[in-house]
């Protein structure tokens, strides 16, 4: 009798897909608008769009997000940039240097997030025509480039991209290289991957 019960249970498990090989990355995928958290942030990424800076003509990626820090002191936005990594799956399009505004004050840049305050924010990255995994350019390379002040023209790449993969990493509060003052850093752990369709 008990053998039959076990057999039925196992068959039930098999029928429900319980013996399928698991893919360890599946659980990291987070739907748009769902909560991703690391030891510093609570983040919900809602939607993404490509825009162009009206003054410079530079192409940018913008993501609307709900963001909150769980630290008890103000956290510079520059420390958070390293924890949110947008990729387009191509070697000729990279998003660099994140900046932030709150939707309630769209014309005023935000440099620090206050502790435990929920804000709706727009995160903006500059788009560059370079390999996202390439090493940073040396000063000579940057300055030998004749028009290094001109924004990269990435309109061709942008036209071909319809999705951005945003990886949210873990966070750690540590001293850096230059002195023993502690600040927040992104780490190499993945806390969530959000695929956002890019609206035209």
């Amino acid at each position: 009798m008990s053998v039959l019960a076990v057999a039925v249970a196992v068959t039930g498990l098999w029928a429900a897909g319980g013996f399928e090989a698991s893919k360890s990355t599946d659980f990291r995928d987070v739907a748009p608008g769902k909560l991703v958290r690391n030891s510093l942030l609570e983040l919900k990424l809602h939607e993404a769009a490509f825009t162009q800076d009206p003054d410079t003509g530079a192409h940018t990626l913008q993501i609307r997000a709900d963001i909150k820090t769980r630290f008890n002191e103000p956290v510079p936005v520059s420390n958070i940039g390293g924890m949110i990594d947008p990729r387009f799956g191509r070697k000729d399009l990279a998003a660099t240097s994140m900046s932030m505004v709150f939707t309630r004050q769209p014309d005023r840049s935000v440099f620090e997030l206050q502790p435990e305050v929920n804000e709706e924010a727009v995160l903006t990255w500059q788009l560059k025509d370079e390999d996202p995994d390439a090493k940073p350019k040396s000063a000579e390379e940057v300055f030998s480039d004749e028009d290094f002040l001109e924004p990269d023209d990435v309109s061709e790449q942008v036209a071909q991209v319809d999705q951005v993969k945003v990886t949210v990493t873990g966070a750690s509060y540590d001293a850096g290289f230059t002195d023993q003052t502690k600040r927040w850093w992104g780490d190499t752990n993945t806390r969530g991957i959000v695929y956002l369709p890019i609206e035209e």
């Binding site: 008890n72 002191e73 103000p74 005023r108 620090e112 206050q114 502790p115 435990e116």
Partner: peptide, 16 residues
């Protein structure tokens, strides 16, 4: 400057 609210959290002054 910063403001210690007395409730564990410290807030930065506005730059706006």
């Amino acid at each position: 400057s910063r403001l210690d609210s007395g409730d564990e959290n410290v807030y930065a002054s506005t730059s706006w």
